[in-house]
């Protein structure tokens, strides 16, 4: 339960961090450490070197534009959770963060760290995916942007190269009138959920659903979009039948086999229930007639 040996490098600029990344193909980025330290304490990982990015000032910035909330790699989860302007721009973050680990963990854990760690059961990756967000990445050849759909590849595996650093996460601003919801079912508060579902939808003045994005965590090897449920909802009146059908359509998205937490059948049931509940909540927030 103690970390293995490693070299500790403190980067003071992004360039220094990238140089350290490029010098060795077995490094790990240390930001908040709330996923990395457990991994090291359990000796599930043995990087040659940790690159501490916490003293790079530009990574602590939050920028809100008309279209995006940009969260730097050193912004702590709790900072985002209590940030009123972020909550106005994209209220999914506050609602979701309440489910991420515990308050004391969120005090130190970063939003970008959770995305880069890419646990398939983690909540924030599913939100980035559902909102069609992106991450900004810097490497030896400069900066690039990676869409959420491209970024998350597999359990703890992303499109990030070993010499790159995620510098920020960009969550789209939700347009006025957008309906949104995140909810999950977990055995204990703060646990990774059996499943979690994120919903973003919009409704026209006649009560017809004009767009729907649904994503889930905990059901496969990465966050997964529930395209079957989306197709049923778009064009519907978000009535009880359509919502129930969307829940049923989501079941086939569950890839996780039976495990110690839940059987696959139970997880499908949980997912269908969460789709129904969260679509109802999102529809109410979009102003759809009940």
């Amino acid at each position: 339960m103690k970390p293995p040996q490693f070299e500790y490098q403190r980067a003071l600029t992004i360039e220094e961090a990238i140089a350290a990344r490029a010098a060795n193909d077995n490094t790990a980025i240390l930001a908040g450490g709330q996923s990395l330290l457990p991994t090291l304490n359990f000796r599930l990982g043995a990087p040659d070197s940790l690159i501490d990015i916490s003293r790079i000032p530009s990574l602590s910035q939050i920028e809100i534009t008309d279209s995006e909330v940009k969260i730097g790699a050193m912004v702590r989860q709790r900072q985002v959770e209590i940030h009123d302007e972020i909550n106005q721009a994209n209220p999914l973050l506050r609602e979701t963060l309440a489910h991420v680990a515990h308050l004391v963990i969120r005090n130190r854990g970063t939003v970008v760290g959770s995305l880069a760690h890419a646990d398939a059961a983690a909540e924030l990756p599913s939100v980035l995916l559902t909102c069609d967000g992106r991450v900004e990445v810097v490497g030896p050849n400069g900066a690039r942007s990676i869409a959420a759909d491209e970024f998350f590849r597999f359990h703890l595996t992303t499109a990030l190269k070993p010499d790159e650093l995620v510098t920020a996460a960009c969550f789209p601003v939700l347009a006025p009138g957008t309906g949104w919801a995140f909810g999950e079912i977990a055995r204990r508060r703060g646990d990774y959920a059996i499943a979690g579902v994120c919903v973003v939808l919009s409704v026209d003045s006649n009560g017809n659903c004009t767009s729907a994005s649904l994503g889930a965590c905990g059901i496969g090897s990465r966050p997964i979009r529930l395209h079957g449920a989306e197709k049923i909802l778009v064009g519907s009146r978000l009535d009880e039948d359509a919502i129930a059908a969307a829940g049923d359509a989501a079941r086939e998205a569950v890839e996780t086999p039976d495990d110690t937490q839940a059987s696959q059948a139970y997880r499908q049931q949980v997912l269908a229930t969460l789709v129904r509940r969260n679509v109802v909540r999102a529809a109410a927030r979009a102003g759809a007639p009940a």
């Binding site: 500790y8 403190r10 240390l30 450490g33 709330q34 330290l37 304490n41 004391v104 005090n107 130190r108």
Partner: peptide
């Protein structure tokens, strides 16, 4: 749990060098 720069945090998930 201890308080680090005004925020409670897990001292087991923090390196002394941090």
């Amino acid at each position: 749990t201890v308080i680090i720069d005004g925020w409670a945090g897990r001292s087991c998930l923090t390196l002394a060098v941090q």
